[in-house]
């Protein structure tokens, strides 16, 4: 029997959808081991957000209201205190989860299974699967500490659906941490976008260095993105060059996506990029170099100059959508 505590991430006073992947993990582990799962919402607006999450089947919802931006030092002591007595503490491997959870683990002397892609119960033990070496190896891992800390890969754990019921909500007290006194939250600049989130979209269109400028991302790629109702992504080279925000980087060290349909436009297909999109159901590559490595993983490859092919494709997609 393993009880699981999920740490839910808040943004703008609401639960981030990314956290629903951690819910799924918790449900799986609780049901496979005959345990229960609880949810801890921590951050600004935790109390208000609780109402949204009482219908997912958690045994209890706990809220820890902490004002100001997400700063791990302000959360870790409270999460660790609440985590005592659980077998597993889990969050989604977003920047928030990756930042906070190892810090919590160190407080509890717990081992961390980061960014896992799967979990099973074997001989009463939790066994985790996780991609390593830019996704070129899958490791099978057990964690020997009394409490185990886990972050889950959003693309590999489907978002949990509400199941009804009404979890009781209570607030917990905040534990002070001296480290928090030496860190000050200054700002959190978030780019607003009407498009779906990269990690949740059914279709993703990513552009690479070949787009050559921020302007071309807007005038050449964005019309295709919008015709498809897709999210926009990018390679590291495009982010580094400032064509798009860093947060759109797909890859080993950026976002991992697994949409129904992925377009790699003017992207060579370096292993670090493939690590973030190989799990997509259907991959389309547009590249003028027939030898580009991206074609080795693409279901459909179009050898063409993107500046000609993308506008054509945009029109064709619009037409196809109009007919459908």
């Amino acid at each position: 029997m393993t009880d699981v505590l999920v740490v839910g991430e808040l943004f703008g006073g609401q639960l981030r959808r990314a956290s629903l992947s951690a819910f799924s993990f918790a449900k799986t582990v609780a049901s496979a081991t005959g345990g229960a799962w609880d949810l801890l919402l921590i951050g600004e607006g935790a109390g208000g957000a609780a109402a949204e999450v009482t219908g997912f089947g958690a045994r209890a919802v706990k809220t820890a209201e902490v004002a100001g931006g997400p700063v791990a030092e302000r959360y870790a002591a409270t999460v660790a205190e609440q985590g005592k007595g659980y077998g597993v503490l889990v969050a989604t491997a977003s920047a928030f989860g990756k930042d906070l959870m190892p810090r919590v683990a160190a407080k509890l002397d717990a081992g961390v299974a980061s960014d896992i892609s799967g979990v099973s119960v074997e001989g009463g033990k939790l066994v985790y699967r996780r991609p390593m070496f830019a996704g070129n190896v899958v490791g099978t891992l057990t964690v020997g500490s009394a409490i185990q800390v886990v972050t889950v890969r959003q693309a590999e754990f489907e978002a949990a659906q509400p199941t009804g019921g009404s979890s009781p909500v209570s607030s917990v007290s905040i534990v002070a941490d001296p480290a928090a006194e030496r860190v000050e939250f200054l700002s959190y600049e978030v780019a607003k976008s009407e498009r779906p989130e990269l990690t949740e979209a059914k279709t993703v269109v990513s552009g690479g260095r070949a787009l050559k400028s921020a302007e071309n991302f807007k005038t050449v790629l964005e019309p295709l993105v919008d015709a498809l109702g897709a999210a926009m992504g990018a390679s590291r080279a495009a982010c580094d060059a400032g064509y798009v925000a860093n947060d759109l980087q797909v890859g080993q060290t950026g976002k991992v996506v697994a949409p129904q349909l992925y377009f790699a436009v003017g992207i060579s297909g370096a292993i670090q990029h493939l690590a973030g999109m190989k799990g997509s159901k259907v991959i389309v590559a547009i590249n003028k170099d027939p030898e580009a490595p991206i074609f080795q993983v693409a279901d459909y490859g179009l050898v063409a100059d993107l500046f000609k092919a993308v506008p054509e494709l945009t029109e064709a997609v619009k037409k196809a959508k109009a007919e459908a």
Partner: peptide, 11 residues
């Protein structure tokens, strides 16, 4: 580099 943008701290 945080989710959705840039988060600035003073440590």
């Amino acid at each position: 580099e945080a989710d959705g943008g840039i988060l600035t701290l003073k440590v």
